[in-house]
Design a protein around this nucleic acid. Sequence first.
RNA 1: GCCCAGAUGGCGGAAUUGGUAGACGCGCUAGACUCAAAAUCUUGUUUCGGCAACGGAGUGCAGGUUCGAUUCCUGUUCUGGGCACCA
Length: 921
Amino acid sequence: MEYNFRAIEKKWQQQWKESHAYKVSNDSPKPKCYVLDMFPYPSGAGLHVGHPLGYIATDIYSRYKRLKGFNVLHPMGYDAFGLPAEQYALETGQHPAVTTTQNIKAFREQLDNIGFCYDWDREVNTSDPSYYKWTQWIFLQLFESWYNRINAKAEPISTLTAIFEQEGNSRHACPGDRQRTFTAAEWKNYSEKEQREVLMQYRLAFLDYAEVNWCAALGTVLANDEVINGVSERGGFPVVKKKMRQWFLRITEYADRLLTGLETVNFSDAMKEMQRNWIGKSQGAEVTFSVKGSDHTIEVYTTRPDTIFGVDFVVIAPEHELIQQITSAEQKAEIEKYLEYVQSRSERERMADVKQITGCFTGAYAINPLNGHEIPVWTAEYVLAGYGTGAVMAVPCGDQRDFSFARHFNIPITNIIGDAFNGEEANPTKDAKLQNSGFLDGMDMKPAMDAVIDKLEEMKIGKRQINFKMRDAGFSRQRYWGEPFPIVFKDGIAYPLDEKDLPLELPHVDQYKPGEEGEGPLANITDWVNVAPDVKRETNTMPGYAGSSWYFLRYMDPHNSTTFADRKATDYWNQVDVYVGGTEHAVGHLLYSRMWTKALYDLGHIGFDEPFKSLINQGMIGGSSRLVYRIRGTQQFVSHGLKDQYETDPLHVDVNIVDGLELDMEAFKKWKADYAEATFILEDGKYICGVLLEKMSKRLFNTVNPNDLVNKFGADTFRMYEMFLGPVEQSKPWDTKGIEGVHRFLKKLWRLFADENKGLIVTNDAATPEELKILHKTINKIDGDTSSFSYNTAVSQFMICVNELATMKCNKRAVLEPVLILLTPYAPHFAEELWHLLGNTTSILDAAYPVYDESFTKESTFNYPIAVNGKTRTEMGLPLDADNSALEKEVLASEVVQKWLDGKQPKKVIIVKGRMINVVI
RNA sequence: GCCCAGAUGGCGGAAUUGGUAGACGCGCUAGACUCAAAAUCUUGUUUCGGCAACGGAGUGCAGGUUCGAUUCCUGUUCUGGGCACCA
């Protein structure tokens, strides 16, 4: 009876499907556990071995928790809206819905092959109208809400209009327009249009004209995190600034809660740090500088108010409206020229040359409010209009950028930190004593910060101010393959669709070209756009992260047609206990879904305000490319070891036709027509390839399809090998060769149960103490490692256990059966097959997890390493219950220690019970 | 430039409240079985010296603390990731 993994895996996958073994109920007396994978975008390329790493990890965890008596939710679905499907549609004319369906089918087959325990009845697909109905519904919730800063939560817009009618907006500053104030009487006098325009400035989902990252090549606007170094993340096309009417989510209102919420979740420090950096909270002050000879004032934002006596100039952003008003007549032409130059600079250029210092003097002078000094006002592109107040006070002795600027334009530098400033570079210290600083002289910088702000507040020319780097999130795409907005415009005012009219389905189009003004393809369907003579639909669609911002909630109650998820279901499943996915979503997806969760919580739709209790970031699996060396100008290929004797060009070769390092030469000739005539120079009769570690990518011929490995070794081997590679969080290179070791392990374990000729050889004999010892050591190790996602060491322990049992020739049910249960999360088909061969009639998926009993692993003696001066010299088996003086006596008497003592007396003997003994001479 | 993480055999990696460095696997080595191959089993495998016993060195590099450091501290180099005119 051989280990016939193909038949076994097929049989049990079928059986589990028929018995609905993975069906999960929302109604269970068991404790719940929610284990989630970041759902994939179903690309046409399919899965390679890097993708399932996280899925296998969560699958093992889910099965483990189930064995431990939990009701485990472990769902899977598809993030199916997205650019590639649409790009593909543009190229081939195939409808994205069609290609997406095909891709999903292919993904599903690959996933099923690996034997995951997903409850497929709960599958979600973000492009399915029954799903995006609720994406649209949540969008309307955001549209119909505002953020009440006093209560620190989102509230329905009706509470805001009630406030306006009572007291205007005096206590609720307008987040979209800081200057805007009105009284209750004024509010009531506004026309409907005016009122709705005001409300738009408060809504959590709102329209605004804003400069956005316009990518002409993609015909779309990109989020900040989709633009890398001024080019689009996808495709690498240039991105420029363009003013467009866009939907936004007012995520900035949640900045503080997104920050403090991090303290309540279990993410890695690196992940939290990335989110903190993205949110970018800074504490400082706003200071008003008056402009000499005019009524204008300049508001600057600074995080270092303590350095205010070191201000040598003020810089305002080129986009700042004040520029036109304060520029002197003499500088007018110069400024115009500079502004024109800045206008011509794309974001990309401004980012590319960070070393280049540019700027222009406005001719105006500001007055330092604390010492009355007149200082020049400059404009420079390094100051951004969108951050803080769009103006900075420059302190060259303390800020390198200001220092370089002052040097470049010959602006005199004031030193306020004495010896701490060397005149050659700025010193951004916070630990110096202030000099040259009026009433701050002699003060330490840190307390001076508060002293300055107090003074400014007293003088009514400044105040404490907290700023965030984070901007509101752009929520429109000029694209077809996304959720349509449930919005119509009447007279240019946005109105929501009625809830009963959801979902607003994506209409069919025959072509995917952008609209005339760069709008999405929907703009071309005039009878869809024009609902009534003066009523038009929104033609943008939602971005990729819309559907993924709440999908974890839909899994809880996926077929509900009256709400996005029943409150009973969300209360039961609550937060995701473990979320596993790649770091690439560290900032975007996680922040958006955290914000949506908080908004839904504020509005009373769910009972928790952080979606993911803990997060594990799986490492990337790198590709291990194989290279062949072609002698230049020939079709002759030379083996790696001999290549230096020739002039060669390295070429990538498909890793699937290389066994370890040895090239399959016949397969190589067939691989590409170019190589049909290839000849080889061999070493030891073999062609040995070179190795290069790089990204796993089709282009580099280093991708490995899980299907091939499952075919060759079985899903159980594949699952265990992926885990055996190393810690889940760590990035590591793929090496197909190593899988054989894991496969051997499973076969070896199989042979403890069954013999090729005799069949099942398991006995009911009682286990020996040695057998029980290894069993319980294994139970302890596997239990601990599995619960902590340390699967690589768990697989090692299985191997150690099987090696020992094989040496003992142990075929006893009392030992093997518990091992089988331990193995179930890792190799479920294998375990279930043998479980049934042992005569069990129920499924091993619900077996009782073995319990560790320490009494079987207790030792009475310990093999102490005996060190002399810290260096291990020998080992001695000594009783664990002996007292120190007895141990010392025995150790000193030993031959080896005597040899090292060489007649001398030891200075000291250090005994760590159960660890080691060190003799100091 | 700033922030974070890391650096251990030929390779993936194991071991940190400071206590036998290199578990487990791959690869390689020698052997058994076989006409042969596959499969399986056995042997060795950090490195240097030595037939061996044994001894020297050894966790990126340089120091330090300690009876004892892969683990803690200081400095430094390199690699990976993130952020980047953010005031």
